[in-house]
Design a protein around this nucleic acid. Sequence first.
DNA 1: TGGAGGGTGATAATCATTGTCAAACTGGAG
DNA 2: CTCCAGTTTGACAATGATTATCACCCTCCA
Lengths: 140, 140
Amino acid sequence: MTEVTRPRMTRQRQAILDALDGGGFRSAQDWHDHLRHDGASIGLATVYRSLQHFAESGDVDTVVTASGETLYRRCEQPEVHHHHLRCRNCGAAVDIDIPDLESVTNRIAAQHGYTDVDHTVELIGVCADCTKVSGAKASG
Amino acid sequence: MTEVTRPRMTRQRQAILDALDGGGFRSAQDWHDHLRHDGASIGLATVYRSLQHFAESGDVDTVVTASGETLYRRCEQPEVHHHHLRCRNCGAAVDIDIPDLESVTNRIAAQHGYTDVDHTVELIGVCADCTKVSGAKASG
DNA sequence: TGGAGGGTGATAATCATTGTCAAACTGGAG
DNA sequence: CTCCAGTTTGACAATGATTATCACCCTCCA
Ligand SMILES: [Mn+2]
Ligand SMILES: [Mn+2]
Ligand SMILES: [Zn+2]
Ligand SMILES: [Zn+2]
């Protein structure tokens, strides 16, 4: 009954996946710019839609910045639940696991009578590369 | 040298603080609606500015929803670092402490060469009251 | 009490994201 | 290989939360 319509692989979607490879967290508009600078012909709306589809299927991770902008990057471990340590300067990120976090949050939620609990955890810092480059910041 | 200009207490700011008391996380526009419905005369821009000022001074907590909207609520413990367990239905929230979180995240960040690390942690569920009210949901 | 400077608010401007819809494309059937 | 039913695309308009304007209003201290 439930006809599953398989997503089609188009030139645009392939270009997006290629662009995402190896990169950090970037906004949809940033990715669009990169694609265009690399000569690709692709519309902004398509980039938004594709990234959102990939996010739903688990192929890309998303984070929402403090200013409300959504950032995307290709996920290397779509299967397992994990979190991210991201560079606030260049967007680079690594998948991380926080031991016992799930059980701890579940216990806390239960203690307060909350059900159906989900959590958001993001670590934001400055990656090793960016720390080197801007080394003269914390001198004065 | 550094002349500190003390924030002035105005009718509007007092009204906002009063409105916030005892309430959960709400958007600036929601708070503005509440204020107006209660007969207060206050502009939307003022609500935005005031909430942001209070947030900077630590008197108000903020969270950014998945859709990018910023929610505000009065904070009961401006002094100590803490996180929130929030109801996705009514906005009610409790301040929570996650033991050892700081040290764990610091260690993970250091292992990956990241510096100047900050973290975001939010628990979102359904509070006890809302769970009761909509109790017939998970039956089928 | 006077007034300098912060605060207010109606309104316009931003800007990321979503909606529209005709035209182009993909993938399977024949 | 060809054909066609859906999908997908993209230029452009629309949305909606938030921010900038700027003339006018208040607060607070001397
Ligand atoms: Mn990931
Ligand atoms: Mn709080
Ligand atoms: Zn970096
Ligand atoms: Zn609730």
